[in-house]
């Protein structure tokens, strides 16, 4: 994976900035109604989150997946615990996440990617 330290150090870019850029790259007009744009951003963010999660889940082997299911059953709304499980059991999560985000971008933009 790219070790663009300078870029990471220069700013931890947030998801919403990425989404905004994505919308811009897809040709969404700046004149769009603010409320609509906001909704669009939220929907896209939710979709990206789901997509990312799917890739993370798919990367797990059976044993890990079974354990993960138990964690969810027991700690359904405790995001911290669930994320901790991921940290401890999915070593290459950054790589998976970055690739998923790129893949999502490619999917979303189609031939504009």
């Amino acid at each position: 994976m790219v070790q663009c330290k300078e870029l990471v150090k220069s700013g931890k870019l947030k998801m919403d900035e990425f989404i905004k850029q994505l919308l811009k790259d897809s040709g969404v007009s700046d004149d769009m109604d603010a409320a609509v744009r906001e909704q669009l951003q939220k929907d896209l963010t939710d979709r990206l989150t789901d997509f990312l999660n799917k890739r993370i889940v798919e990367s797990m082997d059976e044993k890990t997946l079974a354990e993960f299911e138990q964690v969810i059953d027991q700690n359904g709304d405790d995001a911290a615990k669930i994320q901790t499980f991921i940290e401890q059991n999915v070593a290459n999560r950054e790589q998976i996440a970055a690739s998923a985000i790129l893949e999502f971008r490619a999917l979303y933009l189609g031939d504009k990617a």
Partner: peptide, 17 residues
């Protein structure tokens, strides 16, 4: 998100770059 903020930021950073 299944990944925490730090991971997400790194991942987004790489992806955005």
């Amino acid at each position: 998100s299944l990944v925490n903020e730090t991971t997400l930021s790194v991942a987004v950073g790489v992806a955005v770059s």
